[in-house]
Design a protein around this nucleic acid. Structure first.
Length: 337
DNA sequence: AAAAGCGTCAACCGCCAGGAA
DNA sequence: ATTCCTGGCGGTTGACGCTTT
């Protein structure tokens, strides 16, 4: 049995409000207030409207000092920045914009601002990718050795863990993310989280999601490597290559054994994780990865503890090449640029 | 000129939290 | 402690008008 309706739907008018209805509602509320009970209000006035409808009409249209349309540049900026930080909590956003209603702001965002912001973001990201690529090329070509007058002491560690790749099911990714998030041993991690993707329908529904995690825009991940974590999973545990990743999503629950194994593995690794994460300048290659590659929304968290020291760049290169051969795995094609 | 497509926005729907009974 | 009711909220719908084909 569903919930009882708040009013008798059959005897209630729906659709646009007439000027007469507006006048009745407005004059009553101006004289007597709402009486603290919207449901009872329409009967008192003699309006064949649902109480909720009256409330909405008053709050969004009839109430004094309401501004409609004509958003200023400042208001645009404020809405955008609030949206980025708190998501679609329109009532809170509206509270920062005198005279604006949450409904108006929501409509304005959905019809105009979103497109405007996304267009701007896309242009900035394209530019940032070009700039970063150039900067890193310059850095590697011209400055790396000049910055190290002594034989460079490059601290580097192989990736402790290698992330699940594009072929993995969403469920596995979700699970590993959840474990990483819930680990209190590692602080300051930034978790690329598709659930906070502003393009997603489900984003930001749960305020808890926003407390400690930052949204990392897709295709643009200037994430400091030392604040990330990387998971190495044994590629042999991955689903077979010929699996269609989309189909896999639908059947991921059949892989419960595999999930359990991965879960245990990750938990063990998290327990042995150092409190303080390293990640000095020696994480160059990883930085390049983060800034230069097309991670897309499948970006994985990286953890990069420093537990090795190299006396020269060649040794560093060699070690990196060994450790990162994982990425030659065809399953990660497209994962790196 | 008519049809199709698109953008806008008022209004509705359904869920949830919190307070009253 | 539980149930019920209401207000508040965010997502979605659909009417309307404008633009494009």
């Amino acid at each position: 049995m569903g919930r009882a309706p708040c009013c008798d739907k059959a005897n209630v008018k729906k659709g646009p409000w007439s000027p007469e209805e507006d006048a009745k509602l407005k004059s009553y509320i101006e004289k007597h207030g709402t009486g603290g009970n919207w449901i009872a209000l329409p009967q008192k006035i003699g309006l064949k409207r649902c109480g909720k409808s009256c409330r909405l009409r008053w709050l969004n249209y009839l109430r004094p000092n309401i501004k409609h349309g004509g958003f200023t540049e400042d208001e645009d900026n404020l809405i955008c920045s609030l949206y980025v930080s708190i998501g679609s909590r329109w009532s809170i956003i509206a509270a920062q914009l005198p005279g604006r209603t949450d409904n108006d702001i929501k409509n304005y965002w959905n019809t105009r601002l979103k497109k405007k912001l996304l267009g701007k973001q896309r242009r900035e990201q394209q530019q940032a990718r070009r700039d970063t690529k150039k900067r890193d090329e310059n850095f590697v070509n011209n400055h790396l050795f000049s910055m190290c007058p002594q034989p460079p002491q490059l601290q580097v560690a192989p990736p402790l863990l290698v992330g699940y790749g594009v072929q993995e099911s969403r469920l596995i990714r979700q699970q590993t993310d959840d474990i990483l998030r819930s680990s209190s041993q590692v602080e300051g991690l930034i978790f690329p989280n598709y659930d906070l993707d502003p393009h997603s329908n489900n984003n930001n529904k749960n305020p808890e999601n926003n407390e400690n995690h930052r949204y990392v825009p897709e295709f643009s991940c200037p994430v400091p490597v030392n604040k990330n974590s990387m998971i190495r999973l044994d590629p042999s545990t991955f689903p077979p290559l010929e699996c269609d990743p989309i189909a896999l999503n639908g059947t991921a629950t059949n892989h419960s054994q595999e999930l359990d194994k991965i879960t245990t593995e990750i938990q063990e690794i998290m327990q042995s994780m150092p409190q303080e994460l390293g990640g000095l300048s020696s994480t160059l290659s990883a930085v390049e990865m983060g800034n230069n590659t097309s991670w897309g929304s499948d970006i994985n968290p990286l953890l990069y503890p420093c537990n090795s020291t190299f006396s020269n760049f060649e040794a560093f290169q060699q070690k990196i090449q060994q450790d990162w051969t994982f990425f030659d795995d065809p399953r990660f094609l497209g994962y790196l640029q």
